[in-house]
Computed example of a mutant assay.
Amino acid sequence: MSVERNTPMRALFFVVALLAALYAGYWFIGSSQVETRAEAALAQLESRGWEVDYTDLSTQGFPSRFDTTVTDVHLGSPDGQVRWDAPFVQVFALSYRPNQVIAVWPPEQRLLVAGQPLTVISEGLRASGTAQLSPDLPLDHAAVESGPLSVTSEQGWSASLSRLLGAIREAGAAPATYDVFVETENLVSPAVPVGLDLLRLDAQVTLDQPLNRHVTGTPHPRSIALREARLTRGDVAISARGDLAPDAQGVLAGEVTVTVNNWPGLLDLLQELEFLPFDRRALFEGAFRSLAQGEDRIEVPVTFTNGKVEALGLVLLDAPRL
């Protein structure tokens, strides 16, 4: 009787042992493939003329994760204008969901951009991405986030923010269409020396090619549906919404509606930054007062046409080229 009772237990033991052995084999094969693909990607950069150097590349995390770490990373472009140096970079993936990855950067990195040395200090800088399970590996969604982050140049300028969140996901509305969201808090840069409490972009963008493993070059926007572009400083807030697209020359064209809360405060801010000459303030103040009709909130149509950005019958600046 005891032999009969032990037979099912022995069978169960062997099944469990077999499954464990198979999973262990899967993990070691998978980790080997992860390392092989990472090494192949770095080798491909090297074959294109990039300078590639690192001390070690290894994968750990058995049994549930593929944790790949590259230490003492040094990458340099063929023309010597771009260089990246970091003590490490890590890429994490669950072994049972290898199509979802997380990349983690170190607290300090050094960059060389256009011959300009930069130091990047960050807290919790990481990115994540998920590809759909199909042969083309189309992007499903991705995000990048960070706590306090600063960039310091040896040429004497610096930029910083207290929080960063950027995200993109497939919209499904049309081929190669994506929802894009970017938000920063307490942004200070040479372009915005007074600092911005909040900077936000929320848009739906259609690209000239889908984001998948076959993507070539840099994808370019075909159309931009701007849900909200918003910046705030103190009690001054500016937001914009509308539809934009590149014209035949690749210059942004279309129309957006810009809403300003506390327009007198905006004029004060522009004058403080010397963006608004004193002799032109009266012109803008009269136009804004007429639009506001006794309120501190105005809406202004802004057109992007013939390579120019125009509002209130005035040419403000050149339209950007995409």
Rank of each mutant, 00 (worst) to 15 (best):
F14G: 10
P107R: 09
E123G: 12
G147N: 04
P264T: 06
T259C: 03
W27L: 07
G124I: 00
Q116N: 12
A229M: 13
G286E: 13
Q293F: 09
S95C: 10
G172Y: 00
L164W: 06
A143M: 13
L19E: 02
R227T: 11
P117N: 04
E46P: 01
M1L: 15
S158I: 04
A253Y: 02
Q293I: 07
R222G: 14
S128M: 15
V113W: 04
L211Q: 02
A292N: 04
A43W: 06
G250L: 03
N261M: 14
Q60E: 15
F62L: 08
E228Y: 11
G217N: 02
S77L: 01
G124A: 01
V182D: 04
P148A: 02
G25Q: 02
D243L: 11
E285I: 05
R37E: 14
E255D: 03
V215E: 00
Y23H: 07
A240M: 08
Y178G: 01
L266D: 06
Q271F: 03
N99D: 13
D56G: 09
A24W: 08
G307R: 07
P277H: 03
L317P: 06
S153T: 10
S95Q: 12
V309E: 01
L18A: 15
S239A: 14
L75P: 07
W50G: 02
R5M: 12
S128K: 15
P175N: 04
E295S: 15
P320T: 00
P210W: 00
A41M: 11
S160P: 04
I168T: 01
L149I: 07
D243F: 05
L317E: 12
N306A: 13
R10S: 12
L283N: 09
T303Y: 04
T68M: 08
E299F: 01
F66Q: 03
V3K: 15
E310G: 06
D79W: 06
Y23N: 06
L45M: 05
A21G: 08
F28S: 07
N186S: 14
F28T: 06
L139Y: 02
N262I: 03
L94P: 09
V34M: 05
G61A: 08
E295I: 10
V194Q: 14
A143C: 08
N212F: 02
Q155P: 11
A167V: 01
P301T: 05
Q249Y: 11
A229H: 12
Q204C: 08
L45K: 03
A292I: 01
Q116D: 12
L291D: 07
S128P: 13
S134Y: 04
V70T: 10
I168C: 00
